[in-house]
Design a protein around this nucleic acid. Structure first.
Length: 895
RNA sequence: AGGCACGUAGCUCAGGGGGAGAGCGCCAUCCUGACGCGGUGGAUGUCCAGGGUUCAAAUCCCUGCGUGCCUACCA
């Protein structure tokens, strides 16, 4: 122990390596199951195993780490559950690409071998993102790390599936789903992204079978006509009233299909008649159900036309589109072609255009689950922050549609359903069955489909804690305290965790949900590789250090606002890190003889600046604590920044330099050292959640108490005295100093030039004895600070002093400050300066005077407000008078 | 098409009924013994527009314009 020396400059790389290892070695990240301390827990939004750290991860995890470190220091048993997601399609794609380089497909390997291959890939590369999180300084409880395909979590998945099935909340059936022809799987509604595309609207004429003319329909996808099984019109449409029930002949296919009536059709769009392709459109599929229409599938899983497409069989859907249009034209069936921009659905993984398709899939009936999840938020069991997202959450929950959970891929949780070849029975079980319970046959085939990745993610808050076992961890940490995630997965993940948590655990998965915004570039554009505007977090860490980077992220996280990231900003906070480092070096230099066993210093021995900075620290602590508690990260960091730079460094250190420089062991010097030491120590703690490395480095060098700053208690307000009087006195002294400096600057006097100044107060500001604030004794007591920081050689203080000749005048409150200028004063410059001050004053005065002249204001405004305005008016008038006086004097001087 | 945000200094933004703020940038100045990654001082605003509520509006309400996002998707 003992205080060490700080190197000339902070070296982030070394500090980051050393201290992370030190924290790990000492097991500081580990929370205790069943601890008697208050609990605080967060489960990480598990990044994809295939992921590499981007700005979104960085923001998300830094905010979590800030909260975890803050709560840990506040004495909570603070647990951060880390882990990764198996990311079904994404991971399968990555491994398939790897295979493709070897000239293989997954079918060459077969299902089992392929899955082995994915596990190999996971073992090899799955730790990348985890290690990147460590570079951010994340204090995750790594002993608990989980993966969504771990045995325990997989068992949880099966268990929940079976329960839902037995409760009638999971069903299987032939429905139209979003099909990705590239991934060869169904995807959920949420996984479809709509993008505007310039296309065409083709009018097609379908002739009536009886030769009585034709009906015109319009489509953006002409190839789907091959699967048409009806034409629909609105039952109230007078144009078609007599056509309902007639048959038309489907061109190219020559199939007779009926004209049907359905309310779904809007009369004033296009011709008012719609072609119905139940196999290719969700609305048409629904209509087929209502009217018992035939469903003719015309495409295979790759969106290639099948045997039902006649001559078009074997053609890709877009190729077929061209040919169908060509042939329609040839046959004289084609009407107008209009350019038409419309939204086209794409697969969110591979951006391939979605093809709605009918297939057998598994669904979760979400309505009852959503109802409970909505109620929990209404009742306040879970808070969504910022609250504006609540509305979005409710909106979605009330319009929610059933969730398609089956995927036709190999990597994922295989659905726990078996079919008996013997009797055709279906077995839904959480354990692999070895025989059919009905026919005792042992020829069982497990369902080929796997579950949507989000199904297992939805269980994350309890599956990671050991459920279905009633583990101590589960009892200790569920429900978790807080979830921090991006609003972009509110529906994908947050809503589903709410539903599954309430269903399975009968209790919400988390108390608070903090939704942060997206990280964008400095112009507000979404970062993307293709735009080339993405900033790599690891590069930023290399360049500016983790602490500067973390502080930047927190500082720009205002609620509900996007975070605009730019290198310049991070650099700015790197300068802040440097500033802190140097202030600390200064402190260390002046604490050399400060006793290691901290001495007791009575408050009576503390100087005005000592008492002032401690009072300011108290306010800062309050702001930081409430800032973090309310997830106002920008306010917490802003208040630390302001305090350290503009109060502690700019003022306090400058004020106490003379005392510290005097090498005599006076009580005043010891008091200043005591204050300096205490402030610095508390400040490092306030800063620790955002700047873990810098603060640990400083802690270990100076405050080393045998353990880490990360487990030291967070400062509390009541450690410091609220001293409004000290703040008022210091405030006046600071204002006087600033005024003199301004005069110096505006009059072009070199800072090195020592000046003489006179401060004159009005009568009545001098008498002592009372407890009221009086400016004269205050200034007298602070004269040393003024002389020092304004660089004066002489300062006279008095009441109603005579204004000297050749002085520049400044007014602070009711004090006149005369700065004596040697030789001839630049009358023009001084006049301009005073007139500027006067103009500003007059503007303010006019506003106040107008208010006070308003009878309604006097009658209706709160008494305190009126009083404040009156005081202000008095003060402004005094000031104005003093400036007028100075101007007059100047006039005399000039003539 | 609905919904939700946002529009404040050159830039990026905070604030959110009674005196327009910060950071960066800019100008001037200082080689002061922690820091030039610094100090000191300075300039800059129809707080998007219009209307309303109020004694008082940048702040609350309405309308419009602009921007971003979310949800749905009508062939």
């Amino acid at each position: 122990m003992g205080r060490g020396q700080l190197s000339k400059a902070f070296e982030p790389q070394a500090a980051e390596r050393n201290w992370y290892q030190y924290w790990m070695d000492n097991n500081f990240f580990h929370a205790i199951d069943g601890s008697a301390k208050p609990q605080f827990s967060i489960v990480i939004p598990p990044p994809n195993v295939t992921g590499i750290l981007h700005m979104g991860h960085a923001l998300n995890n830094v905010l979590q780490d800030i909260m975890i470190r803050f709560k840990r220091m506040q004495g909570y048993n603070s647990m951060w559950m880390p882990g990764t997601d198996h990311a079904g399609i994404a991971t399968q794609n990555v491994v398939e690409q790897e295979l493709a380089r070897e000239g293989l497909t997954r079918h060459d390997l077969g299902r089992e071998k392929f899955i082995e291959r994915v596990w190999e890939w996971k073992e090899k590369y799955g730790g990348v993102i985890t290690n990147q999180l460590k570079r951010l300084g994340c204090s995750c409880d790594w002993e608990r790390e989980r993966f969504t395909m771990d045995a325990g979590l997989s068992q949880a998945v099966r268990e929940v599936f079976v329960r839902l099935y037995n409760d009638g909340l999971i069903y299987q059936g032939d429905y139209i789903v979003n099909w990705c022809p590239r991934c060869h799987t169904a995807i959920s509604d949420l996984e479809v992204e709509f993008k505007e595309e310039a296309g065409h609207m083709w009018d097609i004429r379908y002739p009536y079978v009886d030769g009585s003319g034709e009906i015109v329909v319009a489509t953006t996808r002409p190839e789907t006509m091959l699967g048409d099984t009806a034409v629909a019109v609105n039952p109230d449409d007078p144009r078609y009233k007599d056509k309902i029930g007639k048959m038309v002949l489907l061109p190219l296919v020559n199939r007779e299909i009926p004209v049907i009536a359905d309310d779904y059709v809007t009369m004033d769009f296009g011709s008012g008649a719609v072609k119905i392709t139940p196999s290719c459109d969700p609305a048409d599929f629904a209509m087929a159900g209502r009217h018992n229409l035939e469903i003719i599938k015309i495409m295979d899983g790759s969106a290639v036309i099948n045997e039902n497409g006649g001559v078009y069989q074997g053609q890709d859907r877009f190729e077929c589109r061209e040919n169908v249009v060509k042939d329609l034209e040839k046959g004289g069936f084609l009407g107008t072609i209009t350019p038409y921009t419309h939204n086209v659905g794409q697969c969110y993984r591979c951006k391939t255009t979605i093809e709605p398709a009918v297939s057998k899939q598994w669904f979760v009936k979400v309505a009852p689950l959503a109802k409970a999840a909505t109620a929990a938020v209404i009742k306040g069991k879970t808070r969504i922050i910022p609250p504006m997202w609540e509305a979005t959450y409710f909106e979605w929950m009330t319009n929610i549609r059933d969730w398609c959970i089956s995927r036709q891929i190999w990597w994922g949780h295989r659905i726990p359903v078996w079919y008996c070849d013997g009797c055709g029975n279906m077995i839904v079980a959480s354990q692999d069955p070895d025989h059919c319970p009905t026919c005792k046959g042992s020829e069982l085939r497990q369902e080929e489909d796997v579950l949507d990745t989000w199904f297992s993610s939805a269980l994350w808050p309890f599956s990671t804690l050991g459920w279905p076992e009633q583990t101590p961890a589960l009892k200790t940490f569920y429900p978790t305290s807080l979830l921090i995630t991006g609003f972009d997965i509110l529906f994908f993940w947050v809503a589903r965790m709410m539903m599954m948590g309430l269903y399975t655990m009968k209790e919400v998965p988390f108390r608070d949900v903090y939704l942060h915004a997206l990280v964008r570039d400095e112009h507000g554009d979404k970062m993307s590789k293709s735009k080339g505007n993405s900033i790599d977090p690891l590069q930023m860490i290399d360049k500016f250090g983790t602490d500067a980077f973390r502080f930047t992220l927190a500082a720009f996280t205002a609620q509900g606002r996007d975070v605009r990231m730019s290198e310049e900003r991070i650099e700015g906070y790197k300068f802040f890190v440097n500033k802190i480092w140097n202030a600390t070096r200064f402190a260390v230099m002046n604490l050399e003889d400060y006793p290691e066993a901290e001495p007791k210093v009575s408050r009576a021995d503390k100087s005005l600046p000592d008492r002032w900075i401690e009072s300011r620290l108290r306010h800062t602590i309050r702001d930081v604590v409430s800032g973090f508690n309310e997830y106002r990260f920008n306010e917490a960091t802003g208040s630390i920044y302001q305090f350290i730079w503009h109060e502690f460094c700019d003022w306090y250190l400058e004020l106490v330099k003379p005392v510290l420089y005097g090498k005599d062991a006076t009580t005043g010097r010891l008091a200043a050292q005591h204050t300096l030491y205490g402030i610095l120590k508390a400040t490092m703690k306030l800063l620790h959640p955002t700047m873990p490395y810098l603060t640990e480095e400083i802690w270990q060098t100076i405050f080393n108490d045998g353990t880490s700053i990360m487990v030291s208690p967070f400062p509390t307000e009541d450690e410091y005295v609220d001293d409004p009087r000290a703040e008022e006195e210091m405030g006046l002294i600071m204002e006087v100093i600033t005024r003199i400096r301004a005069i110096r600057g505006e009059m072009g006097i070199a800072p090195s030039k020592k000046l003489r100044a006179i401060i004159s107060a009005p009568e009545g500001e001098k008498e002592k004895g009372g407890t009221d604030f009086k400016s004269v004794p205050c200034i007298e007591a602070g004269a040393g600070y003024i002389v020092n920081l304004a660089n004066l050689e002489e300062l006279k203080i008095g009441v109603a002093m005579e204004e000297p000749k050749g002085a520049a005048t400044g007014v602070v409150g009711n004090l006149q400050i005369f700065v004596l200028l040697e030789g001839a004063i630049d009358v023009a410059a001084e006049k301009a300066r005073l007139e500027k001050d006067r103009a500003k004053l007059e503007k303010e005065l006019a506003i106040v005077a107008r208010k006070l002249a308003n009878r309604d204001f006097l009658a209706k405004a709160a008494a305190a407000v009126v009083q404040k305005e009156e005081e202000k008016h008095k003060e402004l008038r005094e000031k104005h008078l003093l400036i007028e006086k100075a101007l007059k004097k100047l006039q005399e001087l000039a003539t």
